[in-house]
Amino acid sequence: MSRFPRWWFRATVLVPAAITVAGLAIQAGGIERAVAAAVRQSVPAGDITVDGRDVTIRGVPAEQVAAVKRDAEAAQGVRVVSVVDPRMPPMRITGTPAGVTVTGSTHQQAWRERFVRALSARTHGRKLVDQTTTVTGTDFPLTTSAAEVVVSLLSQLPDTVSVDVAANKVIVTGSIPDDNRRRSVVGLFKRLFGESVVTDKTTT
């Protein structure tokens, strides 16, 4: 027969172990809350998830991902930071003599309104037709500054020209009667995005 009853094992081994596990869980929760608070001070926008000292951030505009990652990494107590890139559905910007039409989607209504406002200021008096939408987890594949340049260029053309952007590819389409002007327009987009990125489907 065992010298000690079974309750002795539970009292001397299992109970302290359970207390230790509970203490570690409480301590881990406190660390996660402290890390989350430190990151939130540096990164006011986005959805923050903390696992121990590792941080995952979602819901950040594509053009701010690098800056957000840098700021979060500098927060106290952080070990590793991952920023989830938003999905980037195709978008199109079409310029006509009457106006400029923009399609595409982004994650938040406020982002969309800010983007459209910026483009509206670059239409050279032509009407901006906003066909963008708000879709969770998405963002425009063009930065605001690049989209502003596209709108500014298209709104100065007497012809109808479209710029489609998707998956690191820019396709320029439209009929431009003057061949010299057509080459000039396409050349502008190649300088903006890079020759290897732009596909010229314009005609004369």
Rank of each mutant, 00 (worst) to 15 (best):
D179F: 10
R114P: 02
P158E: 08
T199I: 11
V186T: 09
A37P: 00
A166F: 06
G59S: 07
K190I: 06
R79M: 04
A38D: 15
V197Y: 05
K201T: 01
D47R: 11
S184G: 08
A167M: 07
N168H: 14
P90H: 06
R126K: 14
I48M: 06
R183G: 10
L24Q: 05
P90Y: 02
S152Q: 11
T133S: 15
L188Y: 07
A74L: 12
D47A: 14
S82D: 14
E63Y: 13
R10E: 10
L192A: 02
A45D: 15
R33I: 03
T134D: 02
Q41W: 03
R182I: 08
P5D: 12
G59T: 04
N168L: 09
T106C: 02
D71P: 06
E73D: 11
A22F: 10
D130G: 03
P5T: 05
T133C: 04
G46H: 00
P61E: 13
V83I: 08
V81S: 02
P177E: 10
R87V: 15
K190P: 09
T96G: 05
L188K: 11
T199F: 05
F4Q: 06
P44F: 05
V198K: 09
V50E: 00
M1R: 05
A36T: 03
F140S: 01
T103R: 01
R181M: 08
V102T: 00
A11Q: 08
R117K: 15
A118F: 00
S175L: 04
L153E: 14
S105T: 10
K127D: 12
E148F: 04
A25P: 03
H124F: 03
V43E: 04
E195M: 01
A147P: 01
S152P: 02
L142I: 08
D200F: 04
A167T: 10
R58E: 11
